[in-house]
Design a binder for these strands. Sequence first.
DNA 1: GTCTATAATAGGATAGAC
DNA 2: GTCTATCCTATTATAGAC
Lengths: 193, 193
Amino acid sequence: MKPGTGLGTRERIVRAASHLMQRQGYDGTGIKQISVAASATLGSVYHFFPGGKQELAVAAIGHGEQEFAHELEHWLAAEADPAAAVVACANNLGVGLRDSDWVDGCPVTSTALGTAGRAPDIQEAAARAFARWRGLVAARLRAAGFAEDVATELAYTVISTLEGAELAAQVERSTTPLEVAGRHLARLIDLHR
Amino acid sequence: MKPGTGLGTRERIVRAASHLMQRQGYDGTGIKQISVAASATLGSVYHFFPGGKQELAVAAIGHGEQEFAHELEHWLAAEADPAAAVVACANNLGVGLRDSDWVDGCPVTSTALGTAGRAPDIQEAAARAFARWRGLVAARLRAAGFAEDVATELAYTVISTLEGAELAAQVERSTTPLEVAGRHLARLIDLHR
DNA sequence: GTCTATAATAGGATAGAC
DNA sequence: GTCTATCCTATTATAGAC
């Protein structure tokens, strides 16, 4: 890919796969559907991903990991106080969900859950994504003066709670779970200061 | 079904559907696979569920709702202190996950996520399940003396966090997210006492 | 690298005998 | 209520021309 010519075919395929699997899961998303959404042909998909759907799913999760990591970094840096920053994360997740009419949830959850126990490559990619996001939260807490072990433990719960609240918000079509989660996480963080 | 003759066909089908969809999601689970697992024929499945796979998924989620509600009630009643009871919930979820080699997560999440935005009946069934579980936690907190509104808000975060931590535990094949979540939820509850 | 055609298989759903 | 056979469509993946 030369610069200035738009996205390359491979990149378009990965993005389409990531977006579609985020909404429909692994089994609910067809390779043909991905190729159409990416404006690529089936031949191109198998050219770039000879490992087929599984290899494509791994790349899609990696893309989702990057995408959400950037959002997370942005939100975490937007507030001077780390507790307020986590509230911003929760609220922004709610905005994104509502704007997509409650279909664009976590970019890895659906794919990871649907392939549990039968696609180790996909599971490892999902585990890497969770670990990365947790690492970003932990780093933000350490930068605010929290001790190493406290920051690590809080990061676990921040990511778990945001994931669960996003899931609940999606299912109930309401931002309430995320708003409540933001408030409670802020209190939990303040408690460990 | 007369008593003493074991489970009826319909019940076997619902249980098999619930268990398979819990592990593989909606699109990853075939009706033929369900009929085999339930020792029933395809004709019987469509006899009891003329609405096809969607109607079956709604019944499967209803079954999962009941199943987890009973576990939740049991664990919540096992400890005199509500904070300790929530810790027990988190730890028991971890045990269940590990015993299933990390495949039996929440009985509704996978199905609900994979059908977001395209199967309203399934979404509503999933929303009912979440609301029911939240109600059980809220009732336990009220019984321990928490004010109505405090109990309601805490119940949101308890369920969200348990869901998210179970998800993280499943993906990372480790009980750590659930153990950390239990400790943090206990502190959060104590904080509102 | 891209494209079309096709193989091989599995999916949901239905019909009708029993 | 149960069972089998079958229709129709969609799926993943491959082959080979360009």
